[in-house]
């Protein structure tokens, strides 16, 4: 179980990485911590001609805290966030979610940018960051563009990454003082991929009430104004049948799968209520 032969490049800045990408075309694969691509390379599911290692690019390992939020470099690891080396502007949500990703040894190398770009629907970040209203910034030959996290994911394993583009940072808005959040995932065992995820953020100061159903077959189901589903975030106002109908309308046909997703969101909301 060894990868195919590939060339390796270690650019030291984003510009160099972009020119490598442009030259090599689609046979180039970008790796950050290699915790997703590594297994696929070993299994020869991915057979690139060139691997571009972006973890040595200093600017991708930076964070910038601002009054309204934080910008997190693409190569910041889950452990950086879990350990608090990255300030948590989301009232503990970032640290909590980071702590629950896979295993510590994976978190020490796996990155937030890699996770989002891999676009795995069962991954944690896509769901929680969508609930938080985070966005990603991409850089390509044409310059920068910034889009909401949920739009970055086109479908299972497909990110909206145009040829020659690189995800450079993730921006997470700062939650208000009264904000509450909830996150609940169903796994059969610790560190395993989630079968259902629920996430919600209620931030009265900013007028935010978002709910996300994650670990679906495809993109997470994001409800930007979820007051009709979860009220102000207390469990009593959770409208299970409406969530079930939403999931069904989103293409979740299997009743048992739907049930577990409704439960995950219900429990996320309950968690938020008690936070």
């Amino acid at each position: 179980m060894k990868p195919v032969d590939f060339a390796y490049a270690r650019p030291m800045d984003v510009t160099a990485a972009l020119s490598l990408l442009a030259e090599a075309g689609p046979s180039a694969k970008v790796i950050a911590g290699s915790q997703s691509l590594g297994p696929m390379l070993n299994l020869r599911l991915v057979q690139p001609g060139l691997v571009i290692d972006i973890t040595h690019i200093a600017e991708l390992r930076l964070v910038e805290e601002r009054p309204d939020g934080i910008s997190i470099g693409a190569c910041i690891t889950h452990a950086d966030i879990e350990d608090g080396r990255v300030p948590d502007v989301a009232a503990g949500a970032l640290r909590d979610v980071a702590h629950g990703i896979a295993y510590r040894a994976v978190r020490n190398r796996g990155t937030i940018g890699g996770s989002l770009t891999h676009a795995d629907p069962s991954a944690d970040w896509i769901t929680m960051l969508a609930a938080l209203g985070a966005s990603v910034t991409l850089r390509g030959a044409a310059g920068l563009r910034t889009i909401p996290v949920e739009d970055y994911m086109l479908g299972a394993l497909e990110a909206d990454l145009r040829p020659g583009e690189l995800l450079v940072s993730v921006t997470v808005p700062r939650l208000g003082r009264a904000a509450r959040w909830g996150y609940y995932k169903l796994c059969r065992k610790t560190g395993e991929f989630a079968h259902a995820i629920g996430a919600c953020v209620v931030d009265p100061e900013r007028g935010v009430c978002r709910a996300v159903i994650g670990a679906t077959e495809a993109r997470p189901i994001v409800v930007a104004d979820a007051r009709h589903l979860i009220g102000d975030g207390t469990q009593e106002q959770f409208d299970g049948p409406a969530v079930d109908e939403l999931a069904r309308a989103s293409g979740m046909e299997d009743a048992i799968v739907r049930q577990t997703h409704v439960v995950a969101l219900r429990r996320a909301v309950a968690g938020a209520a008690h936070r």
Binding site: G33, T55, A58, C75, T77, R85, V86, R109
Partner: peptide
């Protein structure tokens, strides 16, 4: 910050 093992090398 960044992946363990990264950031010690030149291009």
């Amino acid at each position: 910050l960044g992946p363990a093992g990264a950031g010690h090398a030149g291009a």
